[in-house]
Structures are given as structure tokens and as C-alpha cells.
Design a protein around this nucleic acid. Structure first.
Length: 774
DNA sequence: AGAGCGTCGCTTTTT
DNA sequence: GCGACGCTCT
């Protein structure tokens, strides 16, 4: 629904046309604190972007606006939409990004004030865990008794609520608490010695910076005169604190959120922040956006019937002018495999009957593990799909090793990275030596790297090991030097070659090691690509981008395939047809939520988020048994199903296995299925779900041809290009060349390319980002 | 020092 | 069902 022509040069007043009264109010209330309670589908993003555009049209300089979001995707979208409204240059010079990336940028500029250098490394949760384990080893704390991951979440929780290790230890009662406090203390020391910050530190250090350096605070007060915070219900105490600090002078702070969509409590988010806004800013203007433009009446009613079961909820009434819509289908299945097949069957038949195209469909689930069974079913039926998960590539061992090597160029003090790669590939620097070196570093109170550079001074290290260490140090320092003159991509290329990592995988020459080798190539190509997009890109900048990224860049956007993702990842998105799979006790709601009503409420809000992603049709499925942790487990339908308003539902308790049943999986039998226990769900168990048709305007996608002949996964198998020898191609790194030979088939297909610069390379077509040059 | 084998725990969700 | 980790053997 495009309400305002997105052209440049319209006066500010025209931005308000086509908005409803409440939206207009929210957009034009630019001065002073504003709280916008934005229900699902109420045009929140539009209001936010229009509000910024409105400010700009009023003459506010873009650099005086700061917009904080929760995900990169949201920030990206906001910038794009603003540049449509007011033009690219203005949009580019305003600051919009995630809390973490904006703060990282500010902290780099003032790192010296806090005792870091501006080359500081950002530790992800795996680095955190490695550091915590190392601390525990040094403290002699048994990891069987106290799980490192438990310590990590306790430290993170403490940091999120701005509790220092001193405070943490002071309030520690039990022995475990005291141990955790000790680990917290050592961990902090370890990170600062590594010139590293974890995610939580990006927030905490921002607070320290603003609180202890009045000149810096003053500077940012005048810099950011208008603050905007999206998804305010997901902010934690530390984020809240930064926002209050920044808003203190001008008090032009506008926060947008929906308490019903708060789903990050496990990460320290405080709904309290949104509930307390009016207390913090008594003069605040409160705007409620309650008209929903997204969903049918049925879907809204269903969502409302669920969320009503939560106690802690701001009262609001969502309504819509949209059509009544179709009832929600609930499908009971025998097991996860049948569930997957049924989802595919239902989706494909609705695509045929309702004129949807593949990209109109989303399959949502609670845990990533559930995607597997559904993926298989989609692949069997040759239905193109796309998994929004993103992180997995960067979690691979070889990718992490590569990045660790690169991080050491920028910040050699990074102990976690040293330990990760110093013997990868094996260089004869074993655990015994490493332990000695670390102990020495700790006693001398210096970073591990400086011990390595001065290895001769360390007693008790074998001569052979010393040579190996010296070579390792030289490898890094040499390339650090080279970094001055080479571009990030060329540097990475020669450096990673020199580490022996690629050679190591190449020599093994099996499918798996070749895969790993290719993944390393992909990282290097990726740097080359990014460098092409941004000529000023530095290696440090690239690494920061990677460490703060989520499922951001979405190469499959706009392609016609079914989307699969967790409900968390689906927040902020919408689809005409949504399937939510795995509606079972123990899976959704996940875990043992009976014991913790607060947790159950969060799960319920997550369900609310899932339901409200749907515009027209919603399908819910559950299975009586499914594979979990490698074995079959049995479960009851989710209690959330019974909370849904019965008048919204159509239930098919017995799945319709009209076509030949899939062959039974090994390990269990396909005995005749007993009637599903769904009598309490709705009045008509066993009724066939008949998808009716919701009248709607034809859209472009209706006429698009879909050819479900290829299988896609999240790995970059590009839409089939017919490669031929003699073809002219471009590689992001090596430039233009021509294909001189082809070998292998399918995912193993390789091309030998002769590049214009004289290089000859064999490249895996599935991975190398080759473009055809015409 | 490093390879090989067995055990354990694990899956929430993300910056 | 898989991967990370620890123990043992060479």
C-alpha cells in the first residue's frame, strides 16, 4: 500500500498525507519524549521512517539524528526507505544502525580514554566461552561441576544489568557464586589484556565513556539531538542507560515498541523499560498505533485470544479494516516426517489454489533443528526454498580459524585468536608449551603475544618449539607490515596462503577438506567483494562488520522461494501464507515452562509474533512423535493451540495421507495410527481443511512462472548457469578471464580459468563467485 | 606432539 | 545425530 509518492522535493506537510490520525501524530511530534506503542502490523516502520524524513524536511541536519535498531536488517531497511523519501545523500549522512555497531564505532574513536587501542577486537560468544574455559583452567575449577556456558550466561546477565565483578562477588552467597565471581574477575582481566571487548562490553564501555568523560558526553549531546529507538521492548538495562545518557540534554527521544512482542528476555531485555518510559519522562507524549494493516480479522482475533492469557501486558486493542479471511488450519501428524510432507503438500496446493507464489510463503519453527525434516521434504518435492539462518557459515571451524588469523594482524594482543590458530595447522606447539607460555604471561602480567615475541626469555621451552613460535610470530608481523601497502583482499590472500591452512586442507584431498578449503576461499572472495563495494574498507573494518553481523545480507532477497526461519528471525517480516510447525508441549513452548510462568509468557509472546506474521492464511502443525537428540520422543499438542479462539480454527486431526505414504524411516514402524488426541481443540476433529479463496487483487507474482526443478539450500549454489569452455568470466578477486577447462559434476564441478593477469586457477563453481561477462 | 577412539551433552532464541 | 572434548596409545 503505497500512500505517498516517494519522490524528492515534496514539502514536509505532504509527508503526513495518507497516514491515519495516530500515525500522523507520531510523525509530527518531533520535540520532546515520545512513546509509540505500535501493535503488530500497525505501520511502525513507516512511521519511524516518515518521522525521520519529516525531521529532515523541517531542516534538521541528518547528522543530528541517531536511530538505533536491534538488527542490521532493520537498520538497513530504514536507511533504504529514508533514502527513497528524502534522497540518498541525506540518508547516508545520518547515523542509523544497531546498538552494537553504532557503539563500536563511537568506542573506536575514543578507545584510548578507556584503556583500549582503536584496534580492539570484538569477541563473539564462542570467544567468550574459550576465555572463560581458560580462566577456569587457571583457577583450577572443575568444568564438570560448573558448566562454562552457565558461567558465560551469568557473566552476561551481570553485565546486562551493569553489575561489575566487584558487585557480583560482594553479593555472592554460595560457593558456586563466589567461583563465578572469581571467573568474572579473571575474565575481565583477560579481555582487557587482549585488547578485546565482548558484545556486552560494547554497551558497558559506552556507559563508562559517557559517564566518566563529560567532554565526550557533551560532544554527543550536541551531535545527536534527535534519538530514535526501535524495538524498545527488547532493550536491556545497559542499553536503556545509554539512551537516557544521550537524551539527557535535549530530551528528544522517541522510542517505539510493542510489549506483546518482547521475545528477548532470555538475553536480558527488560519489558520494564517500555513500561517505565512514562515514569522516566513524565512529559512524554504517548501514541498508540492500533490499526492493523497487515492481517485478516481471523488472524488478529486468533493472536488476541492467545496473548490475552498473559498477565503482564499493556492493554491495547488491535483492529483492522481488512477482510474476515479464512480460518486457521491446525494439522495433527504422526511424526516429524509426516508433518514435513504435509506442510509441503499443503503449501503447494495452496500456491495452486490461491495464486500465491513461493516467496509468499514462510515456514516458521521454534528451533533451528526443526528445519532439517522440512528441508528434506522440500528437496524431495523439488520445491525451491531458502533458510534464513546466516550465522552457520561463520561458525565453521576453518572459517573461524581464517578470521582468527586475520584478527591477529589487526590486534596481535588477541589471546583467544592466538590460542585458536597457533597450532592450526600443526606446527609442533603443543599443549604443554602453551600452558607454560600462558602461565609465564600471567605471572609477568603481559599479553601472551609479547611473551611469544620474546620467547628466548621463557625458561623450560624446547628449542624446536621456540623456532616454531618465532616462525609464527614472524608470519604475523611480516603481514602486519604488508598490510600498509596491500589491499585487504590481497593481504588476506597471501597471508592465509602463508599460514599453511589452505595447503593443509588441500593436501588431505577428500570431500570434506575440499569443502573447508573452499570456505576459506569464500572468505577471501567475500573480502574482495566488500572491498569493491567500499574502496575505503580496511581489514579492521571488515572484521568488525563480520563480528556484528547476523542474518543481514540476504542474497536470496527477491528470488522466488519459500522462506524458512525461526520465529525470532521472522520478527518484522510478513507473508501472505505462514506455517508454524512443531506446535507441541516441550517444543513450543520450549522446555519445562510449566515451572516458570514468566518463561511461558515469553513463549506465548513468541507465538503471538509468529501468528501476526501472516497476512491471509495461517497453518499450524504438530506431531505426536518426533526425532529429538537422535531419538524418538513423544509429545502432546501445545497448550497454545487450546488457547486459540475456537471460532478461528479448522482442525484436521488425522492427516490426509492420500498419496502413497513415504517409506518408513529406519528404527520405527508405521503401525496404524491411533486417533489423535485433539478432541479438546475444536468441534470438528477429522474434518478436512478446505482452503477457500480470499478475494484479493492480482499481483505481479501471480503471473510469474515458477519452475520448481532445482533444489536450493542456504549454500550459494547459484541458479544454474550453463558453463562452457571459452566463456568469459569475472572473479571478484582475480578479475576477468576465460574458462579453459571444466571438470566434475554437480556441487563438485570445477572450472579452470585463465585470468587476464596471467594467473591460472581451478575454481569450484559452487563457491567461486564467478560472473559471466558478455 | 599428535592421532584415534570413546563419551557426553546438546539446540532455544542473537548482537 | 553430531560435534566438541578428553583420554589413551604411539
Amino acid at each position: 500500500m503505497r500512500l505517498v509518492p516517494a519522490t524528492d522535493g515534496i514539502p514536509a506537510g505532504d509527508l503526513l498525507e495518507g497516514l491515519n490520525d495516530r500515525q500522523r501524530d507520531a510523525v509530527s511530534s518531533t520535540e520532546g519524549p515520545v512513546l509509540i506503542i505500535a501493535g503488530a502490523g500497525s505501520g511502525k516502520t513507516r512511521v519511524l521512517t516518515y518521522r525521520i524524513a519529516y525531521l529532515l524536511r523541517k531542516g534538521v541536519h541528518p547528522s543530528h539524528i541517531l536511530a538505533l535498531t536491534f538488527t542490521n536488517k532493520a537498520a538497513q531497511e530504514m536507511k533504504e526507505r529514508i533514502s527513497h523519501l528524502v534522497g540518498g545523500p541525506a540518508a547516508r549522512s545520518m547515523w542509523a544502525g544497531t546498538f552494537h555497531s553504532i557503539f563500536a564505532r563511537i568506542l573506536r574513536a575514543h578507545a584510548d580514554r578507556l584503556g583500549y587501542t582503536n584496534a580492539f577486537t570484538i569477541y563473539d560468544s564462542d570467544d567468550q566461552l574459550a576465555a572463560i574455559k581458560a580462566c577456569m583452567v587457571q583457577l583450577g575449577i572443575n568444568q564438570q561441576v560448573l558448566a562454562p556456558s552457565a558461567v558465560r550466561s551469568r557473566i552476561s546477565n551481570a553485565k546486562n544489568s551493569m553489575q561489575s565483578w566487584q558487585e557480583f562477588s560482594r553479593t555472592a552467597g554460595t560457593i558456586t557464586d563466589k567461583q563465578a565471581g572469581q571467573i568474572y574477575q579473571d575474565y575481565e582481566k583477560r579481555l582487557s589484556q587482549s585488547n578485546a571487548m565482548d558484545f556486552d562490553d560494547l554497551l558497558l564501555n559506552m556507559i563508562r565513556l559517557l559517564e566518566h568523560h563529560p567532554d565526550v558526553l557533551e560532544h554527543y549531546h550536541d551531535r545527536f539531538r534527535y534519538l530514535m529507538v526501535d524495538e524498545y521492548q527488547d532493550t536491556n538495562r545497559a542499553q536503556y542507560r545509554v539512551v537516557s545518557l544521550l537524551a539527557k540534554k535535549y530530551r528528544n527521544v522517541c522510542v517505539v515498541g510493542d510489549d506483546a512482542q518482547s521475545i528477548y528476555g532470555w538475553r536480558g531485555a527488560e519489558i520494564r523499560n517500555i513500561l517505565d518510559f512514562e515514569r522516566d519522562y513524565p512529559e512524554a507524549k504517548v501514541v498508540r498505533l492500533e490499526q492493523n494493516y497487515r492481517s485478516t480479522k481471523v488472524i488478529l482475533a486468533a493472536a488476541d485470544s492467545v496473548i490475552r492469557n498473559n498477565r503482564d501486558q499493556l492493554k491495547k486493542t488491535l483492529w483492522t479494516d481488512n477482510a474476515e479471511g479464512e480460518k486457521i488450519t491446525v494439522l495433527g501428524c504422526r511424526d516429524d516426517r509426516e508433518e514435513a510432507d504435509l506442510i509441503v503438500k499443503t503449501v503447494t496446493s495452496r500456491i495452486a489454489s490461491s495464486g500465491y507464489s513461493l516467496k509468499d510463503v514462510a515456514i516458521l519453527y521454534r528451533t533451528n533443528a526443526q528445519s532439517q525434516a522440512i528441508e528434506e521434504a522440500l528437496r524431495r518435492s523439488n520445491t525451491p526454498y531458502h533458510i534464513v539462518s546466516g550465522v552457520s557459515f561463520y561458525k565453521r571451524k576453518e572459517v573461524k580459524d581464517t578470521l582468527a588469523y586475520l584478527r591477529l594482524i589487526v590486534n596481535p594482543a588477541d589471546t583467544e585468536s592466538i590460542l585458536r590458530v597457533i597450532n592450526e595447522p600443526a606446527r609442533g606447539i603443543g599443549q604443554t608449551s602453551l600452558r607454560a607460555l600462558q602461565e609465564y604471561a600471567q605471572k609477568a602480567d603481559v599479553p601472551l603475544f609479547s611473551v611469544l615475541t620474546n620467547i628466548e626469555a621463557v625458561p623450560g621451552i624446547q628449542a624446536r618449539t621456540k623456532t616454531a613460535v618465532t616462525n609464527f610470530v614472524t608470519l604475523i608481523t611480516n603481514h602486519q607490515f604488508l598490510a600498509q601497502e596491500l589491499s585487504p583482499a590481497s593481504l588476506a590472500q597471501s597471508y592465509i596462503e602463508a599460514t599453511g591452512l589452505m595447503q593443509f586442507y588441500k593436501l588431505q584431498d577428500n570431500d570434506e577438506s575440499l569443502d573447508r578449503w573452499n570456505n576459506i576461499e569464500r572468505v577471501i572472495s567475500h573480502i574482495a567483494e566488500q572491498q569493491e563495494l567500499d574502496e575505503t574498507l580496511t581489514l579492521a573494518g571488515y572484521l568488525e562488520q563480520i563480528s556484528l553481523m547476523s542474518e543481514q545480507d540476504d542474497p536470496k532477497l527477491g528470488t522466488n522461494r519459500i522462506a524458512m526461519m525461526t520465529m525470532h528471525a521472522a520478527k518484522g517480516l510478513e507473508f501472505p501464507l505462514v506455517v508454524i510447525a512443531g506446535m507441541e508441549q516441550g517444543l513450543f513452548p520450549l522446555g519445562k515452562t510449566e515451572v516458570d510462568p514468566k518463561q511461558e509468557e515469553e513463549e506465548r509472546r513468541l507465538f503471538y509474533v509468529g501468528i501476526t506474521r501472516a497476512r491471509e492464511q495461517l497453518v499450524l502443525t504438530y506431531a505426536q512423535q518426533r526425532y529429538r537428540f537422535g531419538e524418538i520422543s513423544f509429545s502432546q499438542p501445545s497448550r497454545f493451540l487450546s488457547e486459540l479462539d475456537k471460532s478461528c480454527l479448522t482442525v484436521s486431526a488425522r492427516p490426509l495421507t492420500t498419496t502413497a505414504a513415504p517409506p518408513a524411516r529406519q528404527g520405527y514402524t508405521t503401525a496404524p495410527r491411533p486417533a489423535a488426541p485433539t478432541a479438546r481443540l475444536a468441534g470438528s476433529p477429522g474434518q478436512r481443511s478446505a482452503p477457500g479463496t480470499l478475494p484479493r487483487a492480482p499481483r505481479a507474482s501471480d503471473y510469474m512462472q515458477t519452475e520448481p526443478t532445482e533444489t536450493y539450500s542456504q549454500m550459494p549454489t547459484d541458479d544454474a548457469i550453463l558453463w562452457r569452455t571459452g566463456m568469459r568470466v569475472r572473479h571478484p578477486m582475480f578479475g576477468v578471464g576465460s574458462i579453459v577447462a571444466l571438470s566434475g559434476v554437480g556441487s563438485q564441478a570445477k572450472a579452470t580459468v585463465h585470468f587476464a593477469n596471467g594467473q591460472r586457477k581451478q575454481l569450484m563453481l559452487a563457491f567461486a563467485r564467478l560472473e559471466v561477462v558478455s
